[in-house]
């Protein structure tokens, strides 16, 4: 097998919509000094891996676990600036902190209502059971955008505000009209999948963790093929290495296409189409 043959075997034959990407300003091995440089590194790497579009969340450059309202606003401005430079590639999500519910709603109005961001990102400031999330979810339903909620089950211990999958299931049950994408399939693992199995308004993204064999197949078996979306968690992770989780499976090609594009496209608002 020569390199060309190998290369063709590794690439996705279909377009890829990556549900989970951060700027290099937040994470990664490349130090960047400008938005332009951030866009260049990310888009070049994505292009090499065959990633067509990316949902983008800035967590502010120092990634504080409990960001201030101003830090969330600056993070969102950064993501919007990246979108301005590559509008056909980046689909920015609005990052908010449920510690400040009303300010979060105001920021969502600014970023989603006015600037047409494509969703809302929640990280580790408060667990998904926190009542501070309710106004945010209500606003997401009103604006018809998805909410991407970080989750993990860490043997070494979750952070105080870090959601477990069961917390996300609780959130989904409290807001049945919301479209929730729970991040980090490999972080929530075999137990976490069962926690969300009975919550039809939760999809899981494949991001985070290593490219463990069999995880995506298990997710499809547990949740059904329509509730799994591809996410890389780049630049913490490598686009191609994460794509392998889907491409290397023996799932039918139609299911792979759903995971790599169609399912995510269904969750995004109408202005993404």
């Amino acid at each position: 097998m020569n390199l060309k043959q190998l290369r063709s075997q590794l690439n996705s034959p279909w377009p890829v919509l990556d549900m989970h990407v951060h700027p290099l300003d937040c994470f990664g091995l490349h130090g960047v000094s400008s938005v332009k440089e951030d866009v260049r590194f990310l888009t070049e790497s994505a292009h090499r891996a065959g990633v067509t579009k990316m949902c983008l969340f800035s967590l502010y450059r120092t990634c504080p676990r409990e960001p201030s309202v101003a830090e969330c606003r600056m993070a969102n401005d950064y993501a919007l600036a990246m979108q301005d430079m590559a509008a056909d590639i980046f689909l920015p999500f609005c990052y908010v902190n449920p510690m400040y519910p009303q300010e979060a709603v105001t920021e969502i109005d600014r970023c989603v209502g006015k600037k047409r961001m494509y969703g809302i990102k929640l990280w580790v400031a408060r667990r998904a059971t926190d009542p501070g999330l309710s106004p945010i979810l209500e606003k997401a339903v009103e604006l018809d955008v998805p909410v991407l909620q970080h989750a993990w089950i860490k043997t070494t211990g979750n952070l105080p505000g870090e959601s477990f999958p069961s917390d996300v299931a609780d959130l989904a049950n409290r807001h049945p009209q919301a479209r929730i994408i729970m991040a980090h399939l490999n972080g929530i693992g075999l137990r976490g999948l069962e926690d969300i199995a009975d919550s039809p308004n939760i999809s899981v993204d494949t991001s985070g963790g290593d490219a463990e064999s069999g995880t995506v197949e298990t997710a499809v078996k547990t949740l059904g093929a329509k509730r799994v979306v591809f996410g890389s968690d780049a630049p913490i992770r490598h686009f191609s290495g994460q794509l392998a989780k889907v491409l290397a499976t023996d799932l039918p090609e139609t299911v792979k296409q759903d995971i790599l594009w169609n399912n995510a496209a269904q969750l995004l608002p109408k202005w993404s189409r």
Partner: peptide, 20 residues
């Protein structure tokens, strides 16, 4: 590759995608 815990596709793709 770290097979069988990881899919070998990942490690191979990281090399080829980054350098080719």
């Amino acid at each position: 590759s770290h097979i069988p815990i990881f899919t070998p596709h990942a490690a191979i793709a990281r090399v080829v995608c980054d350098l080719d």
